[in-house]
């Protein structure tokens, strides 16, 4: 396992695109957060800790992109055949990739979330730090990355995988919004990964689900996605 981990880490760090992606996670998250902080008016002052983390909405797309690339590059370049020849136990490869993605995304997210909160503190006089939202945002981004990794393993085509993951990230919350029946809307928001997962960022208002329970729902989604990916990985040709 250690050699597989080492191999995956080497693959990741020698990929020329990764510094740009990590910078994009930090700048995108902090930038959108700062832009949201800049808005004024009554509606903006409702939940300042959440407002200062608005950039997570963009950051999650870059995080997903990174995770998709880590697995997708294997298939788009034909490297997968070599990888599985070197490490015949494919699940080990997936586990190593998951560890690398989780660690890298966690590191980038800590900087991104820290930057967003620092900007929020600087721009919003009434802003106060809520440790739960900060930790929750980092965990949220890590879980989104694992969800994307599992989906890419299942789909293999990186472009299609990123389409599926982004559709889940952006379409699901909109569609649960239009359901008028409040019971069903709440049920959907509790079951759907983004609305449930982002509940951890809210400090006021009536949330569909508790903050940690919501992250738990997202974790289940990520786990399910990894399991589906693992099943496909073991059963089919590379």
């Amino acid at each position: 396992m250690r050699s597989a981990l080492h191999a995956e880490w080497t693959k990741f760090r020698t990929n020329p695109g990764w510094p740009a992606l990590l910078v994009a996670i930090v700048v995108g998250t902090a930038g959108v957060s700062a832009a949201a902080d800049g808005c004024t008016g009554g509606a903006c002052t409702a939940d300042l800790p959440r407002l200062s983390l608005t950039g997570v909405q963009l950051g999650q797309a870059v995080v997903a992109l990174l995770a998709v690339l880590v697995m997708g590059n294997e298939y788009s370049s034909g490297l997968a055949a070599v990888t599985y020849a070197a490490v015949p136990r494919r699940l080990r490869v997936l586990a190593a990739k998951a560890v690398v993605v989780a660690v890298v995304v966690a590191a980038a997210s800590i900087v991104a979330v820290g930057g967003s909160l620092a900007v929020g503190n600087w721009l919003l006089p009434a802003h106060h730090l809520v440790p739960r939202t900060a930790v929750g945002a980092v965990l949220y981004l890590v879980l989104i990355a694992l969800l994307a990794l599992g989906a890419t393993t299942a789909v293999r085509n990186p472009a299609a995988a990123s389409g599926i993951v982004l559709a889940l990230l952006y379409a699901a919350p909109i569609l649960t919004m239009v359901v008028s029946d409040p019971t069903w809307a709440k049920r959907l928001q509790q079951a759907e990964p983004v609305s449930a997962g982002l509940a951890v960022l809210a400090t006021t208002g009536d949330q569909p689900i508790g903050p940690w329970k919501g992250l738990g729902v997202l974790a289940l989604w990520a786990l399910a996605s990894l399991l589906v990916g693992a099943t496909f990985l073991v059963r089919r040709d590379a």
Binding site: A61, S76, P158, S162, G163, L166, P173, M177
Partner: peptide
């Protein structure tokens, strides 16, 4: 493909989500 799909969705779709939700 991946980079382009993500960029296109972030540029075209994300603003609507942010504005509406």
């Amino acid at each position: 493909g991946v980079t382009a799909v993500t960029t296109a969705i972030v540029v075209i779709v994300l603003p609507y989500l942010l504005a509406v939700a």
